[in-house]
Design a protein around this nucleic acid. Structure first.
Length: 478
RNA sequence: GCGAGAGUAGCUCAGUGGUAGAGCUCCACGUUGCCAACGUGGUUGUCGAGGGUUCGAAUCCCUUCUCUCGCUCCA
């Protein structure tokens, strides 16, 4: 795969997602709602598979440190609604909203608190709003946190927020985890869950939505070691994304400039992906932030609680520094959809060779037909194995196929299909990315072998039913 | 929130004031001994929603919602 190949337009992927049940627009029958998406039968399976892979790579089988020993990370699932003081301490209540002023005449927007710093776009010699034809709106709040009210009575006292990031739930429980789980520095707390941001402009399918899912891990370490761990997690996170089957040239690191750093952050590097809507530039997939001691210091002050750490060996007291790899799970789904989508030319009968990637903009050559195949890594594919009787009007084939299906479904997410010609059934599975097809024919009844058909090569091999599960187990782990 | 474009079947789209359409998909039956085969039949729409003009609106007007792009924003 070369870097310069034409990327599939996002619309094509959106259509496939709808058509095959990956992702639907939320509340579609009521006209939809801007910035919200529903994950269909295949979408939720794909999302869960990514989620579980992250959890396994972070919590259950965390990476090895420089001594070859696993680092220590524990899991957490904190509530979405928290004491609103948490968001004051975190800086989100004060800093997450900026009053903005629009000029109706020149279609420009200014931060109300910095109005005097802007020049009028049409008359640069004057300040914004100072020109006689300027037509400014009242300052408007752009608070990116969703508000709600806890309890039956709506009042300022009952006001609360849907979390705009999962991270704060981790900081709020940092002391609980220290006090109850015998962890020692350095260690991490990982969490996967929904977060909500009232984005001004939801865009690009699920890339920027108002309700999304994050996979975040806060790594607590000694300040002197923070740079080392920043490098460590940078490497590990890139390694993980590549392990999902994302092409190397589609992922880059991008260091944040000093002026784009968040209020809490000392340094930040993004893992970026070559999305079809950002190409030739890359767009954010994960942020790895050096949060310093900002959060624990803030919560320590606001909650009047000692959140510093005493080293059990040296008795040194300090506030740990935090390295935060924060990924978008739902962005991960989008990346894998973009990455997996492939149009191919497949030789017809009598033409030599296997499938090859279609050249964008060119029509299918003579002797070939086209197919769409989602090339998910087998372990992430929503459906692992499809089981078919070669013919549906032969009861003995159907019965045997049902038997094989019932066996395999105990190990993997399987799909049974007897409708239509066998070729059509293979292609249907290609379009949802099912890595393997198992077909039962008359030979199966005679010698207990089946056809195992490979999604990517379209090659078929005969395999004994006794060995089928073993074969699949090996291949589906990749 | 501003500006521009768009919204018709599950998907892609045609239809400029006079009976709601095509291709693909999907379903059933038949056929079919391994790659979107074929035959026959069939399902699917408040033409995004609401209001107006008109004898009559998918079509013209207004409002609104949603999508796309550009601003703005993006912790």
């Amino acid at each position: 795969m070369s870097n310069d190949r034409q990327l599939t337009p996002l619309d094509t992927i959106v259509s496939l997602c709808k058509r095959r049940g990956f992702i639907y627009q939320s509340s579609e029958i009521y006209g939809g709602i801007n910035g919200f998406w529903d994950y269909g039968p295949l979408g939720v399976q794909l999302k869960n598979n990514i989620r579980d892979d992250w959890w396994r790579s972070m919590v259950e089988c965390a990476p090895l440190d420089e001594n070859g020993e696993p680092v220590h990370i524990v899991g957490l699932d904190s509530s979405i609604i928290q004491n609103p003081r948490a968001w004051v301490a975190s800086g989100h209540v004060g800093g997450f909203s900026d009053p903005m002023i629009d000029c109706r005449a020149c279609k420009a927007r200014f931060r109300a608190d910095h109005l005097e710093e802007y020049d009028c776009p049409r008359k640069p010699s004057k300040k914004a709003g100072a020109h006689e034809s300027c037509d400014l709106t009242e300052p408007r709040e752009f608070n990116l946190m969703f508000e709600t009210f806890v309890g039956a009575v709506k009042s300022d006292e009952s006001r609360a927020y849907l979390r705009p990031e999962t991270a704060q739930g981790i900081f709020l429980n940092y002391k609980n985890v220290l006090d109850t789980t015998r962890v020692k520095l350095p260690f991490g707390i990982a969490q996967i869950g929904k977060a909500f941001r009232n984005e001004v402009t939801p865009r690009n399918f699920v890339f920027r939505s108002r309700e999304f899912e994050q996979m975040e891990m806060e790594w607590f370490c000694h300040p002197d070691e923070s740079e080392k761990w920043m490098d460590f997690w940078k490497r590990e996170r890139m390694r993980w994304w590549r392990s999902l089957g994302i092409r190397e040239e589609h992922l880059i690191f991008r260091d944040h400039e000093a002026d784009e750093l968040a209020h809490y952050s000392k340094a930040c590097v993004d893992v970026e992906y070559l999305y079809p809507f950002t190409a030739p530039k890359y767009g954010e997939l994960e942020g790895i932030a050096h949060r310093g001691c900002f959060d624990l210091t803030q919560h320590g002050t606001h909650a009047e609680m000692k959140l510093d750490y005493t080293d059990p060996v040296t008795n040194e007291r300090f506030v740990p520094n935090v390295i935060e790899p924060a990924s978008g799970l739902t962005r991960g789904v989008l990346v894998l959809l973009c990455e997996a989508y492939t149009e191919e030319w497949v030789p017809k009968e009598g033409v030599e060779g296997g499938p090859r990637e279609a050249v964008s903009g060119e029509s299918t050559p003579e002797g070939y037909e086209s197919r769409v195949v989602m090339k998910f890594a087998p372990r992430l594919a929503p459906v692992k194995v499809a089981v078919f009787p070669l013919l549906k009007n032969k009861p003995e084939l159907v019965a045997k196929a049902r038997e094989v299906f019932k066996e395999l479904r105990q190990h993997w997410h399987c799909f049974y299909d007897q409708t239509g010609a066998i070729g059509r059934r293979y292609r249907r599975q290609d379009e949802i990315g099912t890595p393997y097809g198992v077909t039962i024919d008359f030979d199966t009844l005679a010698d207990n072998t089946v056809t195992l058909r490979d999604r990517d090569t379209m090659k078929q091999e005969r395999i004994s039913l006794d060995e089928l599960s073993g074969h699949l187990a090996g291949r589906l782990a990749s």
